[in-house]
Design a protein around this nucleic acid. Structure first.
Lengths: 120, 120
DNA sequence: AGGTTGATAAACAAAAGAGTTGATTACATG
DNA sequence: CATGTAATCAACTCTTTTGTTTATCAACCT
């Protein structure tokens, strides 16, 4: 189960690690679009954009429907939510720790707490 | 300005697109750790882990301090927050659209709305 | 049928990522 | 000073990604 989640997160984060693909996400947040629509703003070929969309589709960040010979791409907000959920699970833990550390130290700079090392 | 943000996001998302690096993040959410601490759970060399940490550091997801010959790694929650902010800006727009579409259609399935195409 | 659009497949070159081993720096201590 | 420990640097593989060009497919329109 963990490894499946793992590879799903791999695909999703990797998909977002590209400015072209993030622009596609941004465009799709305003509504579905075809490959041609999406390719227009970029200086790369349609084929390249098509590949980018495949990456996003594999990451399940977008879905595709059929409409005559067009294949519109739709954003899948649920997958985006899964990513924020993953991030928040660590971000929030960390902030909670800072808060309690502040409480202990009386709101001074809590940074170089050496902590008991239990390594070998 | 946009391109700077762009490459910063590139680095951050790319850094998270790897199970080892995500595990490192998870470990660091419970407190700082050294390269040796972080390398232990994995079957790869310390050099490899060191490289992973450099990737995370370049993405500003972690910072490092000095402590004798040790260089403890600390999580930087602020950068994680920047990522959720980026994602939410599109996720939430999209959900808002679904909500208003539901309002128009009277809470039926709002999916294949062709929409007026204003393409060239 | 023939032609046009929209989108993909296949094959290839260039670049980047992830890991390895071997040598090197920096510090601590016997 | 010599030794051990923490971490990095350098050089080298192996594999994956990205983009290009060329060719193909599938659906529509007269």
């Amino acid at each position: 189960m963990t490894s499946q989640d793992d590879s799903a997160l791999d695909l999703a984060f990797l998909a977002l690690a590209d400015p072209v693909r993030r622009s596609i996400i941004a465009r799709l947040s305003r509504g579905p679009a075809t490959v041609n629509d999406l390719a227009e703003p970029f200086e790369i070929s349609k084929q390249a954009v098509s590949k980018h969309i495949q990456v996003l589709e594999q990451a399940q960040l977008v879905t595709r429907s059929r409409e005559a010979q067009r294949r519109p791409v739709h954003l899948n907000p649920a997958r985006l939510e899964a990513l924020t959920a993953w991030i928040d699970q660590y971000r929030l833990v960390r902030e909670e720790q800072f808060r309690s550390l502040d409480a202990v130290l009386g709101s001074s700079a809590g940074q170089a707490a050496p902590k008991a090392k239990e390594t070998k």
